[in-house]
Structures are given as structure tokens and as C-alpha cells.
């Protein structure tokens, strides 16, 4: 059993996600009580755009929205390592 990954959001919310999560990072953030921004939830609108301070994510669907350097789209990705995010 792989160790769960730790996700820190806005330096005040800290939660764990399973190493191989079925849920998108956005869903995990919501479950942890983060008031997340979103619209389409399928990677094309970019409303959930989040700054990745540290860590690595993997996309489950290729985003159509422009992902600026240092940003991620949590609605279509999962954590690959511990993460620090600004949302």
C-alpha cells in the first residue's frame, strides 16, 4: 500500500489523498472543504486554475484551457506527489 499524498492549499488547509486517486484533485479539494472555483469541470474553461507552488500532478484529460506557467487545472488532474497549492 503506497503512502497517501499530502496536499496543502493556501497554507491553511491540509488534507491527504490516496496515491492513486480516482477523484480529480478538484474533487479532493472540495471534499476537504476548500471553497473551489470551477465552471466546466472538464478542462476547457480554466475557471479552477490553481497555482502550483510545489509538487507534481498528472493530467487524466488533456486540458483545453490555456495553462499558464506555474498553474494547474485541478478538475482534470490528480496528485503525483505531495502538493502545495494556492487557490
Amino acid at each position: 500500500m503506497t503512502k497517501p499524498l499530502r496536499v496543502k492549499v493556501n497554507s491553511d488547509v491540509l488534507f491527504e489523498v490516496p496515491a492513486q486517486s480516482d477523484a480529480s484533485l478538484l474533487q479532493s479539494m472540495e471534499q476537504a472543504g476548500v471553497e473551489a472555483h470551477f465552471h466546466c469541470r472538464s478542462g476547457f474553461c480554466g475557471a479552477c486554475r490553481t497555482h502550483l507552488i510545489s509538487g507534481e500532478v498528472a493530467y487524466t484529460t488533456e486540458p483545453l484551457a490555456y495553462v499558464r506557467r506555474g498553474d494547474i487545472l485541478p478538475c482534470v488532474c490528480v496528485a503525483l506527489s505531495d502538493l502545495e497549492l494556492e487557490h
Binding site: E35, H39, C40, R41, S42, G46, A47, R49, R68
Partner: peptide, 27 residues
């Protein structure tokens, strides 16, 4: 604004109409 590299100009950082989102989810 953040999406095109402009500095966000307004104090309103939380969504005042959260029910809007369920109409904007594409699926």
C-alpha cells in the same frame, strides 16, 4: 484577469452566487 496575466483588481475573491456553478458544469 488572472487567466491572461492581468493583476486581479477586485476584493471579491469568493463566489457570491455559488448556485451559478451547477448551471455552468458542462456535463
Amino acid at each position: 484577469m488572472a487567466a491572461i496575466g492581468l493583476e486581479p483588481q477586485y476584493d471579491q475573491t469568493s463566489n457570491p452566487l455559488p448556485w451559478m456553478n451547477k448551471y455552468l458544469v458542462s456535463d
